[in-house]
Design a protein around this nucleic acid. Structure first.
Length: 682
RNA sequence: GCGCCUGUAGCUCAGCGGAUAGAGCGCUUGCCUCCGGAGCAAGAGGUCGCGUGUUCGAGUCACGCCAGGCGUACCA
């Protein structure tokens, strides 16, 4: 580069251009040098091939010797190929994932957690670490209390008979309780949105309210307040109203106006924003959607609105029943908990999640309170604004806000998630002797887990410094984020059913001669496999946009592509009437003749699995395995099309068969790490 | 304010400091007398958000911007 500068070749060029020019000038020179090296290395005759390409020297080994050793190793290790010897590492790792709730339905978001947790556990275990797989069931907390309040108040004794459907039914009760309790908030949020986004509405409401005020049907001050809020596009605070139920009177007026807007729809012509003004955000709802949402709320308005405060009170009272361990209530909790647990066991079973330990929130409440007491006694925690907190930054002497302050118990003495997690993590260290605790939990809780770890460090657990929060981003839908308020989250069981149905259709179309039993099994393997792969083939810090359409497609970069390659390999071996044992004596004399590029690529790909497993474990990233297994399938397909196996002449035929057998094993093992099955036919 | 994450082809995403930045979907066109076409081959499609550095070499590392998302004391 300096010589070039001195030569004046680069004069008058920008730095970037100069670099480009320089590399263009250096390129041919580097290639010439590479050719000289290749010639002298090639002359030694120790390598199969030596080439100079773009200034690089590529050296190919003698394939037969390397291939025989590799294939022998794969077939010998069989389902352990790619894995390190069990427990060959010292560090004992506890992985907590699939923290599902009882009394609440699981949705696609939870699926990502299950898939990631299962895969990470397999991979870490496969890399040789002793592991403990744990789940932590949310069997108590506000959601449970809400569900049971709603059950006792509105649905006692209505539960369907039979274990299978009770858990799901309970989930629906929870959803109803959430809708009831959030009713006022939802209605007001809707009104706020409309007043923000619809100037026509604001103007019309202004007139109507003035009319209402003149007719004296409702309190004038409340009218004035509502008017002010709507016209200024501000949120309504119920506590500012003299009569809270004025909203019920007000609601039909809103509907009249929204209906009018739909019926006399004017094509909306957005005004070009004046200079210096920002263009207004497009409305979140069409007039028809607004009306539909109004009607949904209207159907409940007269009944629900006045009762919400009473319900909130009832929920608090229900919480007290739990805190006081009211015998009848505890019995109800145990019974309903059992319904949900039956569901959870089935879900775990279907998605291949097995656990060495089941933790539940209810079992660590008391220990949590104990830790809070000790933290207070030791001066690590203090009472601030009436509740125990740990001012972590202050305790660590940090100038900059980093871990902030963590509340560790509610002011009314009930436990927080943090109360329980402190106890649970201590348990992992003390009772299970974990050297490292990993949480697979969504990324929004990363500060929270840092806080838990730091508090435990302050409390005296040095291991906590090695804790790891394996965060992952959310699953969103094509139309936007999953919102529990909107209730638009596809339920786990519905997603599963949809993909199984689709898998059935595809199998019946592609391979109708399979027996009914096989079709059923393969539909399961392919459908669930596709679902899992979709959850794992994206890096954890990326939002997965779950498009049901796309998830139901089994083409391209997806599990069925890989499974198909595996089925092809199986079929070749089957047609050849070959079993692994038959290769034993052939291996020493493996002869590919003149190895094709596709054979070399495939050998190289097969050889890479052990390294991939180690890397995926070190980085806690199943993505490396998904990428690998896809590449392997692709490389195998290249080989499949370029190199006939059964029709090849000996000794090449045997050599290629051995390579196919090794590939099949490697594909199967790679998929197994992801928790995906490899069907022999599909 | 502070912190974390994201920005690569029309879309969804890969990319272990190294060669001409790769897949899938979608689009165009070929390939079943040949081990299963859930496949293969070819084509079109890129200022790797912007800038400045470090380096023989930067999509990758550092710093600074811009844009979006998330978190930030009694939710889980």
């Amino acid at each position: 580069m300096r010589d070039l500068e001195a030569s004046g070749e680069l004069e008058g060029l920008s730095k970037k251009e100069a670099k480009k020019k320089a590399s263009a000038l250096i390129g041919p020179w580097a290639q010439e040098l590479a050719e000289q090296i290749a010639a002298s290395v090639g002359a030694t005759g120790r390598f199969a091939r030596v080439e100079a390409v773009n200034g690089y020297v590529n050296i190919s080994y003698n394939a037969n010797a390397v291939a025989a050793r590799l294939i022998g190793e794969v077939l010998d290790a069989d389902d352990r190929y790619g894995l390190a010897p069990a427990d060959s590492r010292a560090e004992r790792i506890m992985i907590e994932h699939s923290q599902l709730n009882t009394h609440k339905a699981a949705h696609v978001g939870h699926l990502r957690n299950i898939c990631l947790g299962v895969a990470v556990t397999n991979i870490i275990r496969g890399a040789g670490y002793p592991t403990i797989a744990a789940t932590y069931i949310g069997d108590i907390g506000r959601h449970v209390i809400m569900c049971l309040w709603c059950y006792r108040q509105f649905h006692q004794g209505e539960e369907p008979a039979g274990d299978a459907s009770r858990g799901r039914w309970l989930g629906e009760i929870y959803a109803e309780s959430a809708a009831r309790l959030a009713f006022r908030k939802d209605a007001l949020a809707f009104l706020h949105t409309v007043s923000k986004e619809d100037p026509v509405f604001v103007e019309a409401i202004d007139k109507m309210l003035k009319y209402l005020w003149r007719t004296n049907t409702v309190d004038g001050e409340d009218i004035a307040y509502l008017l002010g809020r709507v016209t200024h596009q501000q949120e309504i605070d119920v506590s500012e109203l003299r009569d809270e139920n004025v909203i019920v009177t007000f609601w039909p007026i809103i509907g009249d106006q929204l209906r009018d807007e739909v019926e006399n729809a004017q094509p909306a012509v957005p005004e070009p924003p004046a200079d210096g003004e920002e263009a207004p955000a497009p409305p979140s709802m069409t007039p028809e959607e607004r009306l539909a949402e109004w009607e949904r709320l209207n159907a409940r308005m007269a009944d629900w609105w006045p009762r919400v405060p009473r319900w909130e009170q009832e929920v608090k009272e229900t919480f007290q029943l739990w805190e006081q361990k009211d015998p009848a209530f505890v019995t109800l909790w145990e019974t309903t908990r059992g319904w949900s647990l039956a569901d959870l066991r089935r879900i775990f079973d279907e998605f291949g999640a097995t656990f060495d330990v089941w933790f539940s929130e209810s079992e660590v409440e008391d220990e949590g309170r104990q830790i809070v007491r000790e933290l207070l006694e030791q001066g690590i925690a203090e009472i601030s604004d009436g509740l125990p907190v740990v001012k972590i930054d202050e305790k660590l002497g940090l100038e900059q806000e980093t871990y902030r302050t963590m509340p560790i118990l509610r002011s009314d003495g009930t436990t927080l998630y943090a109360t329980k997690d402190l106890a649970l993590t201590q348990k992992k260290f003390v009772e299970y002797h974990a050297d490292r605790a990993i949480w697979v939990v969504d990324v929004r809780q990363s500060l929270y887990f840092d806080q838990i770890s730091k508090v435990l460090e302050l409390y005296g657990f040095a291991q906590a410094a090695k804790n790891l929060h394996l965060g992952y981003e959310f699953v969103a839908l094509p139309e936007g984020a999953i919102s529990s308020r909107k209730g638009n989250a596809p339920m786990l069981e519905d997603v599963r059913d949809a993909i199984l149905t689709r898998a059935r259709e595809v199998i019946e179309e592609k391979n109708p001669e399979l027996s009914e039993a096989t079709r059923k099994e393969v539909a399961w393997q392919v459908g669930i496999g596709a679902l899992k792969y979709a959850m794992l083939a994206r890096d954890s810090n990326k939002v997965i946009v779950f498009d049901p359409e796309e998830a139901l497609s089994f083409d391209g970069h997806a599990a069925p592509y890989i499974q198909y390659a595996h089925a092809r390999a199986c079929r070749i071996l089957e047609n050849a009437g070959i079993t692994d044992a038959k290769f034993e004596k052939a291996l020493s004399a493996l002869d590919f003749g003149e190895t094709a590029a596709e054979e070399l690529s495939l050998l190289q790909s097969v050889a890479a699995l052990p390294e991939v497993v180690q890397r995926a474990a070190a980085e806690y990233r199943p993505l490396h395995v998904t990428n690998y297994v896809y590449e392997l399938a692709k490389t195998f397909n290249d080989f499949y099309h370029a190199c006939p196996v059964l029709k090849a002449a000996e000794p090449v035929r045997t050599a290629r068969l051995a390579l196919v057998a090794a590939t099949r094993t490697t594909l199967r093992n790679g998929l197994a790490l992801l928790g995906i099955e490899a069907p022999e036919v599909m």
